[in-house]
Design a protein around this nucleic acid. Structure first.
Lengths: 336, 336
DNA sequence: CCAATCATCCGAAACGTTTCGGATAAAGTC
DNA sequence: GACTTTATCCGAAACGTTTCGGATGATTGG
């Protein structure tokens, strides 16, 4: 592998001059620059970004820290869409992406901060970690520029992107009440996700405005999985056989709930209306197709990368970006 | 950021000793090691992997070069499952993954080899590039250890993982002929994918064994997309209204074909049987659920990472790994 | 007691780059 | 002609590690 030194020797100039020539500095004669560029090409030179990183103290890489990057979660193309969004922006810049994954199963001995410092990433985008993650605090308070996806926390070096989950859930609630539903239940994710709290809040508020209470026994957690959603729905149906609508905090749980309803011999949407959240790919293909709150997932990633790189390259202070959402009515819900 | 030098000063030893103590060499007294480890902890030391990479000439990263890592392709969770497989293996090792993506749209000025050399990846896994990719040759013949996914090429430093596409397509063909189908067509991907060639070969052979010809006019390309599959199916139906079965080179195209059939007022599988390839997530959820050839996509990635890291760490020569496949009969196909 | 072995430590070079501070010679200024 | 300016170049230090080749002193063997 040819180095800058080899070029210098071959071209008969100093190392300094080669470096400056290749980096477009003005204090090098156009003729010598040409010669240097030419010999660089002849020697098939590629700059060694590691050496550069070492002296510049910048690695030009951003870490993508995702939790639950495992096969099961591939169902949910949420994660992958966020990733493509991040990549969409990053590929326009000179930043590369390095993938960190946390398998919560195996005890991890290193904190996220350590992980990032060792790999010398300039910043990190964090996705899918739970609010009870022991290392969340550390990274929000820490020195490493970071952007959180769907966790509304701002720190000295930490910003976030998300959607307005309260408003989204509110719209779902409004939609159901306006359709004449009265006996309504909710399947939430788990208590350690911000989105769960927010969606509960928005949904409750919408119902309350129509004078409908959402008692604790009408809320079950489904852990954001299809199976969890199915079981949660079964429990809800057990408790209240008059149910006419269920709002689910994720599409995957909504699909599970539909399975449960069908297994009980009931029909969607004739007997029970179902509304999900996320607008995952599956929701369009499932039978009946799913009414849901869509988020621009791709934009979520795009904006995250944009914010992070603005923090890195232009010292912009971290902030928060809210990406739009939208109610998409399909066939899993109907007027009462 | 504390360095090894800081530790040396604080602990009153040399830099060498700190390095050797931290890396578990035997020629350092147990007491001094303890002291060093302790002061390292106090100073909140993290090793700088960049400096280490520079001197070791190993970055302990593998590149993941994927083509078409864009939103549209997220439909197809093939790619993401391969990625999780790669990650599954890599996370057991000390290798990190850095993501390279090629957006074929924007003219790329750098070859894959240059990309890899600049970022100093120790090896690379390449996924989703076409056989007519101008840089494929370069990387197969090149010096950088690489593993190709679904491209059967072996070089001095290049191996591959794939499934037996010929056998898979052969099974699909056998299944259809044994079910009594005679008027059969095929929707293939495009001419620049190895899998297309192989699937065509296997399928043709199976039909031929039953004395059934597959003329060129019974084969249409669908570019591996849902829309392409739909259009291809329409062209086929136009040409031959007696068709009773279509084999598609990908599930996505199969789904498109089903749309086309329905739009023509025909039924799947009563009028026309459809069989796909890949067993993507959607194939289980679509109506009717899709008969398909399943590949262990996760294993594809896992084995790719395994092979690459064996090449890197144990100088194993590159080879080829064939991952198993399986015919999964669902509801989009039936006996004639 | 002398030489050989051993345990423990360290200095300095090396990895490939960037960049600060200057050096040199030619050109311009009065 | 003496001075300043300008264009062009370069030496050497720095980034944070690893590692080679020794150095030191204590212990052992005969």
């Amino acid at each position: 592998m040819a180095t800058i030194k080899d070029i210098a020797k071959k071209a008969g100039v100093s190392i300094t001059t080669v470096s400056r020539a290749l980096n477009g500095y003005s204090d090098v004669n156009e003729d010598t620059r040409k010669k240097i560029v030419e010999t660089a090409k002849i020697l098939n030179y590629s700059p060694n970004s590691i050496a550069r990183s070492l002296v510049m103290k910048k690695s030009k890489t951003i870490g993508l820290l995702v939790s639950g990057f495992i096969r099961e979660n591939a169902k949910d193309n949420f994660m992958i869409e966020v990733m493509t969004g991040i990549n969409d922006f990053a590929s326009q810049t000179d930043y590369d992406i390095v993938l960190f994954t946390t398998n919560s199963s195996k005890q991890r001995e290193k904190t996220y901060t350590q992980l990032c410092r060792e790999r010398q990433v300039d910043g990190v985008i964090i996705q899918g970690i739970r609010t009870d993650d022991p290392y969340l605090e550390e990274v929000v308070e820490g020195e490493i520029p970071c952007v959180l996806v769907d966790i509304p926390r701002i720190g000295k070096h930490a910003g976030y992107v998300s959607t307005d989950n309260i408003a989204g859930a509110y719209e779902a609630g409004k939609y159901l009440t306006e359709a004449g539903h009265k006996e309504i239940a909710m399947i939430n994710g788990h208590d350690y996700a911000f989105v769960s709290k927010e969606r509960l809040e928005g949904f409750t508020r919408a119902l309350l405005e129509e004078g409908i209470e959402l008692p604790a026994q009408s809320i079950e957690n489904g852990e954001f999985s299809e199976e969890g959603g199915e079981e949660a729905a079964l429990r809800l149906l057990e408790k209240n056989s008059d149910l006419t609508a269920i709002f689910c905090s994720s599409d995957l749980m909504a699909i599970g709930a539909m399975n449960a309803i069908k297994s009980k011999g009931l029909r969607v949407p004739e007997d029970i209306s179902i509304i999900g959240y996320d607008n995952i790919l599956l929701s369009r293909y499932v039978q009946p197709s799913l009414t849901t709150i869509a988020q621009d997932t791709n934009a979520l990633g795009y904006e995250a990368a944009k914010m992070l790189i603005a923090m890195l390259d232009q010292q912009k202070p971290p902030g928060n970006t809210i990406v739009k959402h939208e109610l998409i009515v399909r066939n899993s819900s109907k007027k009462r």
